[in-house]
Amino acid sequence: MNSSLPQETVDKIAQERSHFATAPSAFFQAWKHGVAIAGPRLFGDGTRESWERSNDKWDLCPNTSLIKRSIGAMSSGEKVFLAAMVSFYNSRDGGALLKRAGVEGLADLGGLDLGRRQVIAALILHYNGW
């Protein structure tokens, strides 16, 4: 690291590098927890066994066609949470589902229960692309 940089800057760079080195694993753990809350039937091959065997986010991609068909019968909180989850995978599909769930902005995620809020917060914090 360039020694002419202020120590505060050097420390901040080290903190960022450390965070993003662990972000993929942390994102997957949050994603897997979110899948458990939303229902494994809507992700991966739709089985609980698939969820249990999953090793990365690619094993648990949302089944967007099934979600689009199923989301209408869900509670408001379930819809918003599931739509937010889908938006990490595909922003266009997720955005459309968020609108369908009545979400107009991030503050609308404030209606989620604590567990769902924690999952979404962790996904935002550790998102590193799909």
Rank of each mutant, 00 (worst) to 15 (best):
W31M: 03
G39R: 02
P62M: 01
G46W: 08
T22E: 13
G39L: 03
D56L: 04
A38G: 07
D56I: 10
F28P: 06
E49G: 09
F43L: 02
R48H: 12
W31L: 03
F28T: 08
A21I: 09
D56H: 02
S25P: 10
A30H: 07
A36V: 07
E49M: 12
R41I: 15
N55F: 01
T22R: 13
T64Y: 02
N55S: 09
D45I: 13
A26T: 09
K32F: 09
N55M: 06
D56P: 07
K32Y: 07
E52F: 09
W51L: 09
Q29P: 12
D56T: 11
I37W: 03
A30K: 06
E49F: 08
H33D: 03
T64R: 00
I37E: 01
D45C: 11
R41D: 15
A38I: 01
K57M: 05
F28Y: 15
D45Q: 12
R53L: 06
A23C: 10
S50V: 07
G34T: 02
F27V: 05
L60H: 08
N63D: 13
R48Q: 14
W58V: 00
E49N: 08
F28R: 07
F20M: 11
P62H: 07
R53W: 04
E49K: 13
S50N: 10
G44K: 08
T22P: 00
L60T: 06
G44L: 08
E52D: 11
W58M: 04
F20Q: 02
H33W: 05
T22V: 15
S25V: 15
H33N: 05
C61H: 01
N55A: 04
E49V: 08
P62C: 01
P24Y: 04
F28E: 08
I37K: 02
A21R: 15
P40T: 11
G44D: 09
C61S: 02
D56F: 05
F43I: 07
S25W: 14
N55E: 11
G44H: 12
A36L: 09
Q29R: 15
A21H: 14
R53T: 02
W31T: 00
Q29L: 14
V35K: 06
F28H: 14
N55K: 11
G34K: 10
L42Y: 13
H33C: 00
H19N: 11
H33M: 00
S50T: 12
S54F: 12
I37V: 08
L60M: 08
G46K: 10
G46H: 10
K32R: 15
W58H: 08
H19T: 14
D56C: 10
A38F: 02
R53E: 08
I37H: 06
A38C: 11
A30Y: 13
G46R: 10
W58F: 03
H33G: 01
A23M: 06
R53Q: 12
G39T: 02
T64H: 00
W58L: 00
D59T: 05
R53N: 09
A30I: 12
K57F: 07
R41H: 14
S50G: 15
F27L: 07
A21G: 14
C61V: 05
A30T: 03
D45G: 07
